[in-house]
């Protein structure tokens, strides 16, 4: 009986679901999302790829020395690299996820 009343109340309530592709929930201001990388700030200290628990950051070389490559499809959003980067070259965004058509776009240099 309790549920019947509840059901009738629900009948007049606004829906609790969202119609996903048309409506999207805005992530909260503190959401830990995708990483972004400012290559010009990087000094190549190597902390990020040594600390990454998911091996999502690989070491790469260019003319300035060692630089990280981010394989964002492996990223587990733990953000240790964001915290550990001495030059704040790695930044966190509120962007939710790695849903892309082209996997190579998740390889950020």
């Amino acid at each position: 009986m309790v549920t019947s009343f509840e059901a009738i109340k629900n009948f007049f309530r606004k829906r609790a679901t969202i119609l996903y592709p048309e409506e999207k929930i805005e992530p909260s201001a503190t959401f830990r999302g995708m990483l972004s990388f400012e290559r010009s700030l990087c000094i190549g200290c190597g902390l990020c790829w040594r600390v990454c628990p998911a091996s999502a950051i690989k070491q790469d070389r260019d003319d300035k020395g060692a630089r990280p490559v981010f394989l964002l499809d492996r990223c587990i959003f733990c953000h240790i690299c964001v915290e550990i980067c001495p030059k704040k070259a790695i930044k966190a965004s509120r962007d939710r996820g790695s849903l892309v058509m082209d996997k190579s776009s998740l390889r950020v240099k």
Binding site: A7, N10, R15, A16
Partner: peptide
């Protein structure tokens, strides 16, 4: 109707 009772939308 059941979807409405459950605060959902049902077929759309």
């Amino acid at each position: 109707l059941v979807a409405k009772f459950q605060n959902r939308v049902g077929p759309m």
